[in-house]
Amino acid sequence: MNKRLLLLFCSVTVLSASLAANIPPVDAVQAEMVAEKATAAAPAVLQRGSTGGMVSELQGRLKYLGFYKGDIDGTFGYKTHRAVRRFQLQFGLNVDGKVGTRTKKVIWDASKTWAPGVSNRIYHQGDKGGYVWELQRRLRFIGYYAGKINGSFDKQTDRAVRDFQYRFGLKVDGLAGARTKLKLWRATRHMAAPQQRAKAPAPAITQAKPMKQVPRSNAGLSQQDIQIISQAVHAEARGETYVGQVAVAAVILNRLQSEKFPNSPSAIIYEPLAFEAVADGQINMQPNQQARKAVYDALNGWDPSDGATYYFNPVTATSDWIWGRPQIKQIGKHVFTR
Rank of each mutant, 00 (worst) to 15 (best):
1 M>H: 12
11 S>C: 11
17 A>G: 05
19 L>P: 00
20 A>D: 11
26 V>L: 04
36 E>T: 10
38 A>E: 11
38 A>C: 02
39 T>A: 08
41 A>H: 03
43 P>Q: 03
45 V>M: 14
48 R>T: 14
49 G>M: 04
49 G>D: 12
54 M>I: 11
58 L>G: 03
66 G>L: 04
72 I>D: 04
81 H>P: 00
83 A>D: 11
84 V>N: 08
84 V>W: 04
87 F>D: 13
88 Q>G: 08
92 G>L: 09
94 N>M: 07
96 D>A: 13
97 G>A: 13
101 T>I: 14
110 A>H: 05
111 S>G: 13
115 A>F: 08
127 D>Q: 07
150 N>H: 04
150 N>C: 09
151 G>P: 05
152 S>A: 14
154 D>M: 10
155 K>N: 15
158 D>V: 00
161 V>A: 10
162 R>T: 09
162 R>Q: 11
162 R>F: 05
164 F>T: 15
167 R>C: 07
170 L>Y: 03
175 L>A: 07
178 A>R: 12
180 T>C: 08
180 T>K: 01
182 L>F: 09
196 Q>P: 00
198 A>T: 03
200 A>E: 14
205 I>K: 00
210 P>S: 12
211 M>D: 15
211 M>R: 09
212 K>R: 08
219 A>N: 12
219 A>M: 10
224 Q>T: 14
234 H>D: 12
236 E>V: 00
237 A>V: 09
238 R>W: 00
239 G>C: 02
244 G>D: 13
254 N>R: 06
260 K>R: 15
263 N>K: 02
264 S>E: 02
272 P>V: 02
275 F>Q: 08
277 A>N: 11
279 A>Y: 07
283 I>H: 06
285 M>I: 03
285 M>V: 03
287 P>Y: 06
289 Q>V: 07
290 Q>H: 01
296 Y>E: 14
297 D>H: 08
297 D>S: 13
300 N>F: 07
303 D>W: 00
310 Y>W: 09
314 P>Q: 11
321 W>Y: 08
322 I>Q: 01
324 G>D: 15
326 P>H: 01
335 V>I: 10
